[in-house]
């Protein structure tokens, strides 16, 4: 069971209060019409799925209902940090953040 700190409620709460929403920092294409099928497929379906540090979105479903980001290790499940939508993690390495937004 994960213990997750909601950066809005500023409290540590149990995993069951939250829902997982997948990889964070995926930017919607500025000009979808201009994308090739490959680029569009990449945007829709291809995720980093790393074995190690992962930036991901969670929603605090039963409380403030707001989305925020989490840096979590996908092997140990340890949570390194949580931070509001629209900001970047403080401790992530560039490699884990990756080149795609």
């Amino acid at each position: 069971m994960l213990q997750i700190y909601c950066p809005y409620c500023r409290e540590m709460r149990e995993e069951e209060e939250f829902s997982y929403s997948g990889e964070a920092h995926i930017k919607r294409p500025d000009n979808p019409e201009a994308l090739s099928d490959e680029e569009w497929g990449d945007y829709l379906f291809f995720r980093k799925n790393p074995r190690g540090l992962h930036c991901e979105m969670w929603q605090h479903t039963v409380a403030c209902r707001r989305y925020f980001n989490v840096v979590r290790d996908t092997v140990s499940y340890e949570i390194h940090e949580t931070y509001p939508i629209g900001s970047q993690p403080s401790k992530m390495t560039d490699a884990a953040l990756g080149s795609t937004d």
């Binding site: 994960l2 992962h54 996908t74 092997v75 499940y77």
Partner: peptide
């Protein structure tokens, strides 16, 4: 499944 990604 657990909704989060995991290799553990």
């Amino acid at each position: 499944i657990d909704r989060y990604n995991g290799y553990g």
